[in-house]
């Protein structure tokens, strides 16, 4: 299944840094997010877009992860040549990530 099936997301920007929240619809799925949506997988998913580090922060109290991606916005929102300079669409792209149907 896709991450899209169990989580939603929102993308924010600061300079050349993009952050994407990944939030479980059902907080019981948080452990699955924590297991399968690692910083390494996110970095691999955005190969060619994100050129710097990806750091993951965990918020179990709301069943969410927050990914902070450096050198992700074409040099910065205010100077990027991209059609979507803020990277607002990136969160939706992350929800295309494949995760196992169950942990059983």
């Amino acid at each position: 299944m896709k991450l899209f099936d169990i989580a939603h997301s929102r993308t924010g920007d600061k300079g050349d840094i993009s952050n994407i929240s990944v939030i479980a619809y059902d907080e019981k799925d948080y452990a699955r997010l924590a297991t399968h949506v690692t910083a390494e997988r996110v970095k691999e998913h955005f190969k060619g877009i994100v050129h710097g580090d990806v750091v993951r922060y965990e918020l179990p109290s709301i069943g969410a992860l927050n990914f902070v991606m450096y050198e992700a916005l074409g040099g910065g929102v205010t100077r990027s040549l991209a059609l979507d300079p803020h990277g607002k669409c990136l969160g939706s792209a992350l929800l295309a990530l494949e995760i196992p149907d169950s942990d059983a």
């Binding site: 929102r10 924010g12 939030i23 922060y57 918020l59 709301i62 969410a64 927050n66 902070v68």
Partner: peptide
């Protein structure tokens, strides 16, 4: 909803601590 609030609390946040 709790979901709209969850999305917004992390908007443009890096380290939530």
């Amino acid at each position: 909803t709790t979901d709209t609030c969850k999305e917004q609390i992390l908007y443009e946040v890096h380290d939530p601590k």
